[in-house]
């Protein structure tokens, strides 16, 4: 995040002077703001990942951040800063981490983690919600990260844990990691009906299975995200999405650094979940 802030500071200096800098100009300028071991090429690559592009303008090319990234950041920061100003704000973070013997506790990849979970028996995902006010953690370990499980967790656990009118922060790519079970004509009529109702598609139990399946087929699946945000919003909470480029602003990173350090200090040579009381105990310790 320090690098990102230094880049923005540097861009601001150039723009104020009416200059459209090159990647290398920004690299040289950033080196004056913070020390960096990145080469010019690595730095340029980092900037591209952060969303910087050359935009063709009547006066030439202009290096700038993609406006959609700037705007997303604005809306996120505006909401979170306003919320923090309130007396005892109820802010929660929903996060998920891969739990395996590597003990890296990484976030699941953007695409479905289904294949990863199926390929090995000792890997699971810890799906949890943490409050930055009460420091409470509520979570589940699961081997099946699908919409049904996530929505059940939201309904059975999260809604109980949340204080009224809470703000829930979720990573932008959270929904992409959750797999969706595709229905086939071999599924039962009840399953198809259940799916249609869960996704608010008008239908009745009097309809024949063929009609219901036709409705399922015609429903554009890409628009159907995991509907956890609509469940939360229906209960008066607000869900805000943390842009991918702002992941460092998620305090859950501190929690996992704490756990990593704790595990390392207990058995620095060969840390294993089994010989250090397990992640659950460490989380409880928090």
């Amino acid at each position: 995040m320090e690098l990102q802030i230094a880049i923005l500071k540097s861009m601001n200096i150039f723009y104020r002077e009416g200059i459209s800098p090159s990647f290398n100009d920004v690299y040289e300028s950033v080196k004056d703001i913070i020390p960096t071991e990145l080469t010019s090429a690595q730095f340029e690559n980092n900037m591209i990942v952060l969303g910087y592009i050359y935009k063709k303008m009547p006066f030439g090319r202009l290096l700038m951040e993609k406006p959609e990234i700037t705007f997303q950041r604005f809306f996120y920061l505006q909401t979170i800063i306003e919320t923090r100003k309130k007396n005892k704000p109820n802010i929660y973070y929903i996060d998920q981490r891969i739990i395996d013997n590597s003990l890296r506790f990484q976030k699941p990849p953007s695409q479905s983690v289904e294949a990863l979970l199926q390929s090995t028996n000792d890997t699971s995902v810890f799906l949890y919600i943490v409050s930055t006010t009460t420091r409470q953690v509520n979570g589940i370990f699961t081997n099946v990260l699908d919409h049904a499980n996530v929505n059940k967790w939201i309904n059975d656990v999260v809604l109980d844990a949340l204080k009224p009118k809470s703000v829930v922060v979720v990573d932008s790519n959270f929904g992409h990691t959750i797999s969706r079970k595709e229905l086939t004509m071999y599924d039962t009529k009840a399953d198809i009906l259940k799916w249609l109702k869960e996704n608010s598609i008008p239908c009745t139990s009097n309809m024949r299975k063929a009609e219901l399946f036709e409705l399922y087929k015609k429903t554009p699946k890409k628009d159907l995200n995991c509907n956890f945000s609509s469940i939360l919003e229906a209960h008066g909470h607000r869900v805000i999405y943390l842009p991918t480029t702002l992941e460092d602003l998620n305090p859950t990173n501190f929690l996992w650094n704490f756990i990593r350090n704790k595990l390392q200090s207990q058995d620095p040579d060969k840390p294993r979940l089994t010989n250090c009381g397990g992640v659950t105990n460490l989380i409880c310790e928090l």
Partner: peptide
């Protein structure tokens, strides 16, 4: 930790407002 995050949120927000203005200057050229 959380204090640092709050500071960074405010710094980014302020910086974005400044850039919005300075970038407009370049775009008007």
């Amino acid at each position: 930790g959380l204090y640092k995050i709050k500071q960074m949120e405010k710094e980014l927000f302020k910086l974005d407002a400044e850039i919005e203005e300075s970038l407009d200057n370049v775009l008007r050229m």
